[in-house]
């Protein structure tokens, strides 16, 4: 199997903080690797090492077989980075931002202009091309930022939390873009705090916590580990909460839980269970104002994998 990038035993310390504690990551050629982890897990640190911005204290990483420390210059020709914090130049227009990067990548000026124009069109920014980026909305900035990492047609693209802070519509836009990238044969490393995002985009997921990989696998495998999906129901009449809980428990074959007031929830293993719950609730005459089937949140994944919530400190 060929990996577009590989990291082995990466360790990085900042003073007393151990940001990475021996992490292994690998991205198969032409696939999306989702790196899922809560705040402070070490996602950005791992990306920065793979993008040659930081040197690891131990371990090694390669991109296209080239070492990110010893052959950093060559690695930089293969990668594109969209950092967690906007890396577009506010005072420059969309075109100027992209042309500059083209020139820094040794494109001739006319080629740099052509490439900028092409990308601005692809990302729906043609109209805003000649406006300073500071006049852009959050979603437009993100798209410009993504476009900037694609100027050099990189083999490997790092996207550090590309949708954090975007509303659902803009988030979907970004997802579409990422999917089209992979269609072009590019390998993507995507960090995220949302299992939903990793599930929607990634071929493989590595869950990291406190600088360690705590789970690895395809989205399906991971969901199996954490109990597939969860059905949530909110009875219209709060008095019937217990009845609803009984229905959910009967179908799922395990006790239902009440994550928030007025709501009952139970993990289920397939879509059939959901249909069954809908039918039985109707039969029992329990009206619901909300009924949903959703993936576990990162917090639930964490709770299953580590026995603690993402907001709790390690003992």
């Amino acid at each position: 199997m060929t990996f577009a990038f590989e990291a082995e035993g990466l360790v990085k310390r900042f003073g007393k903080t151990t940001a990475l504690d021996g992490i292994d990551l690998a991205g198969r050629q032409g696939s999306v690797l989702g790196v899922l982890g809560p705040n402070g897990a070490g996602k950005t640190t791992a990306v920065r090492i793979l993008a040659t911005l930081l040197r690891p204290d131990a371990g090694r990483a390669t991109v296209g077989g080239l070492d990110v420390v010893r052959q950093a210059g060559k690695v930089r020709r293969l990668i594109g980075l969209t950092g967690q914090y906007a890396s577009v130049d506010e005072d420059l227009t969309g075109t100027e931002n992209l042309v500059l990067i083209g020139q820094l990548l040794d494109l001739r000026r006319t080629d740099a202009r052509a490439r900028a124009k092409e990308l601005l069109n692809d990302f729906g920014l043609a109209e805003a091309a000649d406006r300073p980026a500071k006049t852009y909305s959050g979603g437009m900035r993100r798209r410009l930022d993504l476009a900037a990492s694609l100027v050099g047609r990189p083999d490997v693209i790092y996207l550090d939390e590309p949708t954090t802070g975007l509303d659902p519509v803009k988030r979907d836009d970004v997802w579409t873009i990422i999917r089209s990238l992979v269609g072009d044969g590019v390998t993507v490393l995507l960090t995220t705090q949302y299992l939903e995002e990793a599930d929607a985009l990634a071929d493989d997921i590595s869950v990291i916590d406190h600088g360690k990989v705590i789970a690895n696998g395809s989205p399906a495998e991971l969901k199996r580990v954490v109990g597939g999906q969860t059905v949530l129901a909110r009875p219209a009449d709060p008095a019937r909460l217990d009845d609803a809980a009984a229905v959910l428990a009967a179908v799922a074959g395990r006790p239902a839980d009440s994550p928030t007031r007025g709501v009952v929830a139970v993990p289920v293993s397939g879509d059939a269970a959901f249909t069954e719950i809908v039918r039985r609730l109707a039969d029992a005459g329990i009206a619901v104002t909300e009924l949903s089937l959703r993936l576990p949140s990162l917090d639930e994944v964490f709770f299953t994998l580590t026995g603690r919530h993402t907001t709790e400190e390690a003992a």
Binding site: R77, D89, D91, L92, E96, L100, G102, Q103, L104, L105, D106, L107, D111, A112, A114, R115, K117, E118, G152, R153
Partner: peptide, 28 residues
């Protein structure tokens, strides 16, 4: 077909890159 293919390394990089970045700073 892509409008522009993968960029190739060209000589005098430091001078060109510094000038391009100088221009950026001037525009700003």
């Amino acid at each position: 077909r892509p409008v522009v293919s993968r960029p190739q390394e060209r000589p005098f990089g430091l001078i060109r890159h510094s000038l391009a970045l100088g221009r950026r700073s001037l525009i700003k």
